[in-house]
Design a protein around this nucleic acid. Structure first.
Length: 577
DNA sequence: GCCGTTTTCGGCCCGACTGTTTTCAGTCG
């Protein structure tokens, strides 16, 4: 798929045009198209061949031609010309905080700054500060930007951010709890994105200065970059930037809406407001000078003629159009989850025994669960040989006798082998209550065909972490997600959203693709330790971002409904010949 | 460069903050 390459190329063209001082609207057109292409779940080359490029939002005649040129020749001639007369490392330079396109152009023209090393030189020798419009403080901020780029990673995972958020909320309640009303995370944390750039927290208070003062002095703060009456900005543990904003009661809803974003969602909302003769900002909704509302988010959306939109949907992916028609989906909620169907014990590579882990899962309030330890070929994970698996089934049956309000399914996470066969024979799979099939090896060996083959086995209920990606470490394997979804639909196999924060696999867009094709989703933690069990929330927020409803998710089923749903128990087999 | 329930031309979101300036440009979210 050339989608990512093409999206990056359009982003780069945007950067070059911005550096050259082109009209911002033209630049935004490239960036908007870049984002749309990045989010496509189909191959842009297929769209091109089917003459359907115009269906991509924000892609008009001009960009269609550029896409076609790139796909047919591997390059865009105009890009080569554009690159003449810009710094060698333009894209790296523009990624530096406080060093924008105007400053970059000035430094390039006057001082020949082409690389980050050049920039460090002109900061050091004082020549940058001599340029018109520059001064000591600006240069110092740029210097900090260069430093930051070298140290901090760009985004951190939601699974690392959420504990930090909770710590901050707890601290604020403890220290200034008497001064604050509503308090909520905003930004990408609230939207449940898989990674976040910084953490935004909104506090309702009439004593902003005191709240901000308490915040910037919280333990763990390694740098204070701003502390006023309405906003405090710090670096925590040299790792993540946190902004706290203090807001009046009357504008809390407007601020919550504004700071939750996304940027694209907000831009779209304000376009609508403008057409209605209204104006929205972080203080409220206005008709001329008259303030029409802003105390709650519901008000803000209502004044624009829209249903309130759940934060996870706010990416300008059609949610505003749906809200206008009262057609938003009834999203899955964490409290709808009745089971966790992919749990490991110390029989394979988990850390708790069957009995102890089952007890911990039961404490989550679920009605049932499935142990799915690794199969025999997963040597690195102490995968179970057939005899050990049979013994484990017996152990689970015995353990079940302890409970009459909680059911423990005997399952496995069976490896999909390089040749596409499963790691256990059907006769053994038939002994199990539940089967997750996953790829753990030979990622480059035709993962699509192997996954399609696995789904055609009637004992396979779920495909585990279907793309194999690890957010912080590796791209998923090259898998044709459309083909996988299609076969899942045909065979009645569920696709997993693995809730482990470094996986979140399927991702939000793939999950949406699946439920649009009426494919069922299974959301599981893949827990190897009790502390992993609460990660269910990340899987649920990923599902919500994918427009997934309660009825789409087999973990919301009662045990009876789950059994009825399983392929093996269906009178009319959906199995593909 | 895109796009149309005022438009095929003329729009294209809004504000805070900072630092450099004496009224504003650049950057950011």
């Amino acid at each position: 798929m050339k989608n990512i390459e093409l999206a990056r190329l359009f982003d780069q063209i945007g950067d070059i045009l911005e550096f050259r001082g082109e009209l911002i609207f033209k630049i935004n057109a490239y960036r908007k198209a870049s984002r749309a292409i990045h989010e496509l779940t189909v191959d842009v080359a297929d769209l091109w061949q089917q003459n359907r490029l115009a269906e991509i939002p924000g892609v008009g005649k001009g960009l269609q031609e550029k896409i076609a040129e790139y796909l047919s020749s591997g390059t865009i001639i105009e890009m080569e010309a554009l690159l003449q007369g810009v710094p060698k490392d333009l894209f790296e330079l523009l990624s530096i905080q406080n060093f924008g396109p105007k400053t970059a152009a000035l430094a390039y023209k006057e001082l020949g700054v082409e690389t980050i090393a050049d920039l460090q030189r002109v900061i050091g020798d004082g020549s940058l500060a001599q340029l018109p419009g520059m001064g000591a403080k600006k240069v110092e901020n740029i210097r900090k930007g260069v430093e930051l780029r070298a140290s901090a990673s760009d985004r951190i995972s939601i699974g690392l951010a959420i504990p930090v958020v909770e710590e901050i909320l707890e601290y604020l309640h403890k220290t200034v709890g008497d001064k604050i009303g509503r308090i909520t995370p905003a930004g990408s944390v609230r939207r449940g994105r898989e990674t976040v750039h910084d953490i935004d927290i909104l506090v309702e208070t009439s004593q902003g200065a005191a709240v901000i003062d308490a915040f910037v002095h919280m333990p763990g703060v390694t740098q204070i970059s701003g502390a006023g009456d309405t906003k405090g900005s710090v670096m925590l543990q040299d790792r993540v930037q946190v902004d706290v904003r203090a807001v009046d009661k009357d504008s809390f809803g407007a601020a919550q809406q504004y700071f939750t974003g996304s940027k694209e969602h907000n831009v779209h909302l304000r376009e609508i407001a403008k057409k209605m003769g209204l104006k929205i900002n972080e203080y409220g909704v206005f008709s001329g000078e008259e303030r029409r509302g802003g105390e709650t988010e519901e008000q803000v959306y209502q004044l624009l003629g829209l249903q309130w939109i759940p934060a996870e949907l706010r990416e300008d992916r059609g949610e505003i159009e749906a809200a206008a028609k009262d057609q938003l989906p009834q999203l899955l909620d964490l409290k709808d989850i009745k089971s966790d169907l992919h749990i490991h014990s110390n029989s394979s590579d988990g850390q708790y025994s069957l009995a102890d882990m089952a007890e911990e899962v039961r404490k989550m309030g679920y009605s049932h669960m499935a142990f799915c330890d690794h199969s025999r070929s997963a040597r690195y994970a102490n995968g179970l040989e057939e005899t050990r698996l049979l013994r484990q089934i017996d152990d689970i049956r015995t353990l079940q006798k302890k409970y009459d309000d909680f059911t423990i399914l005997a399952g496995c996470e069976v490896d999909i082998l390089p040749d596409g066969s499963l790691d256990y024979p059907d006769s053994l799979l038939a002994e199990l209550d539940f089967v997750v099939a996953s790829i753990h090896s030979a990622f480059k060996t035709d993962p699509t065909a192997r996954t399609l083959a696995a789904m055609q086995n009637k004992y396979v209920d779920v495909i585990g972490h279907p793309t194999g990606r690890l957010i912080s470490r590796r791209e998923g394997f090259e898998i044709d997600i459309n083909a996988v979804v299609e076969m899942a639909r045909k065979t009645g196999t569920a696709l997993e959203i693995n809730s482990f924060w470094d996986r979140l696999d399927l991702c939000d867009l793939h999950a949406r693709l699946a439920v649009e094709q009426e494919v069922k989703i299974s959301i599981n933690t893949d827990a190897h330790h009790p502390t992993h069990l609460p990660m269910m929330r990340y899987g649920v927020s990923t599902a919500r971002r994918g427009w997934v409803r309660k009825s789409d998710v087999i973990n919301t089923f009662s045990l009876e409904a789950l059994k009825k749903w399983q392929k093996r128990n269906q009178t009319v087999s959906k199995r593909v010949k």
